[in-house]
Design a protein around this nucleic acid. Structure first.
Lengths: 127, 127
DNA sequence: TCCATAGTTCGTATGTTACGAACTAAAGAA
DNA sequence: TTCTTTAGTTCGTAACATACGAACTATGGA
């Protein structure tokens, strides 16, 4: 098992952050992680929302978040504990993460609203 | 020549925006475009900064920006005029684009400072 | 009608990502 | 100690994405 790689904060790039968060699964993981203090793979993400994502894929996603500098990972016994590096990143790129997280909230709210409307329409047509 | 595709603003996604701007070339194009009112491929980007980027590649990058909803393109005679859709996007995802553009500024400034320091060190060692 | 300019499309070579199978590593039970 | 369970990683491969040169389209002007 190769050692965990965490870039120093000066080596964290905007491109890297945007790329990491441009994947819907990673974005969902990061949103979750920014809310709670700490997360690991099995406890939270093996059956995400609707579909379930394979462990190997999740492992790669966590690695991507870690190597982009978004997340700090530590092995505790058999588990991996992941925490957001949001304080460091906020210092380096002020406002970036809050704006992205907020945009995700806006989008989630919009989608929920659209779904509700669609369901209402379906009920009307059905009955 | 297939018609230009512009997603309506409700169909623009955070993931799409982040992915589009996670490429350094597209980010540079978009930074330029957000500064000036309007841009086309040949006049501005065929010899970007140091290296020159092939036309076909630039064409694809502009398409990516357009289909992510970041840019509006219009053919004027033989030229293509591109403008940022920043007002719409600001309405839908408030603060997102300013934060990303600011982060790119911070990064560019940091890189310039690091380069200067490196050159100074090289001068000291050389003479 | 011919040519130049601006940009697009296509084919291919190269890179990236997803996922199952096989693995490592720690913790606890027998 | 050895077996088993749990948590996560790594590897191989198939599917998808991207970059770039060559060939193309479309417009404007000589």
């Amino acid at each position: 098992m190769r050692p965990l790689i965490h870039p120093s904060i000066e080596d964290v790039t905007v491109e890297g952050i945007l790329h990491a968060l441009s994947d819907p699964v990673r974005a969902a993981i990061y949103v979750e992680l920014a809310g709670s203090a700490c997360t690991n793979i099995c406890s939270n993400f093996l059956q995400m929302s609707d579909r379930s994502i394979p462990k190997s894929t999740l492992s790669q996603h966590f690695r991507a978040l870690r190597e982009a500098g978004l997340v700090h990972s530590e092995r505790h016994g058999v588990e991996m504990h992941n925490t957001s590096r949001c304080i460091e990143i906020e210092q380096r790129f002020p406002g970036l993460l809050p704006a992205i997280l907020n945009a995700h909230r806006v989008q989630a709210a919009d989608r929920a609203r659209a779904l509700k409307r669609k369901q209402a329409t379906a009920r009307k047509q059905g009955g």
